[in-house]
């Protein structure tokens, strides 16, 4: 059986300075996979390199067993909330619809069918009442839900989410986790950059411990150990012992 995500010898460098060093990674289909590591470990870079948004210095990426191109596999991406300008003049429904632009294609306009799909996705994340709301008026948690809805409409097989739980309220966190579990139940694979080490074991099946190099990866119960965490975070890990 193939893997959802397979990364071989991936190196990303900025002017000969490696940001990611020789990453090997195999993620089976239908799991929730956390990517954890300290700041500057290359978590976002890894996602962007897998998605072809950054050109790697070396290495190969296979999604569902084939090199990534947008025709071979449907991929949903939820970037960090801060990566866009939330004062942009547009509303919630419009941002959600952007997830469907790829399917609509060049120069075609958004139709009624797409609008219906977008509203359904907003309903899934509990934002249906905010469809016409200007995006600058949203709270952090609401912004994150809109981004999730935008990824959901893509009806992807593999989702990449960059810190979806960063700075959201407890209600939103629960809603997002429920949603991730629903996606898993549908056989989707979800890669999540995650910061809160306390919740890794309860939220995720697999984990990648990353710090420029791959420290460890695999099922949470096998690789999310104190020893590996120390290797990933250096000496700064004492405070998370409880999770080990």
């Amino acid at each position: 059986m193939g893997y959802a995500v397979e990364v071989r010898d991936l190196t990303v460098a900025y002017r000969q300075k490696p940001v990611l060093w020789d990453i090997d990674l195999k993620v089976p289909r239908g799991v929730l996979n956390a990517i954890v590591g300290p700041n500057g470990a290359g978590k976002t870079t890894l996602m962007k390199a897998i998605l072809g948004l950054i050109k790697p210095a070396a290495g190969q990426v296979l999604l569902n067993g084939a090199p990534y191109s947008r025709h071979s596999v449907r991929v949903g991406y939820v970037p960090q909330r801060g990566s866009v300008d939330w004062d942009f003049p547009t509303n919630v429904l419009d941002v959600t619809l952007m997830g469907l632009y790829g399917r609509i294609g060049w120069m075609r306009r958004v139709g009624r069918k797409e609008r219906k799909l977008a509203l359904q996705a907003l309903e899934q994340v509990g934002m249906q009442d905010y469809a016409q709301r200007q995006i600058s008026q949203l709270s952090g948690g609401q912004q994150q839900r809109v981004f999730l809805a935008r990824a959901l409409v893509q009806d992807a097989e593999i989702y990449f989410m960059d810190e979806p739980l960063q700075g959201v309220d407890a209600t939103t966190e629960r809603a997002i986790i429920t949603l991730l579990r629903q996606l898993r139940a549908q056989g989707k694979t979800v890669m999540v950059v995650h910061h809160d080490l306390q919740t890794v074991t309860s939220y995720f099946d697999n984990v990648l411990l990353l710090n420029v190099r791959r420290i460890a990866s695999g099922p949470v119960e096998e690789v999310f150990t104190e020893e590996n965490l120390r290797l990933t975070y250096g000496g700064r890990v004492a405070f998370v012992q409880a999770s080990g």
């Binding site: 962007k48 998605l51 072809g52 948004l53 947008r70 991929v75 991406y77 970037p79 990566s83 866009v84 300008d85 942009f88 547009t90 941002v95 952007m98 997830g99 632009y101 790829g102 609509i104 060049w106 120069m107 075609r108 306009r109 958004v110 935008r150």
Partner: peptide, 22 residues
């Protein structure tokens, strides 16, 4: 007028724009 949707996406979120092949 022709590329309104594409320009909007490229301006708001260039990464998604690139991922969707625009």
């Amino acid at each position: 007028a022709l590329f309104y949707k594409e320009l909007k996406l490229a301006t708001f979120d260039a990464a998604l724009c690139a991922m969707l092949g625009f």
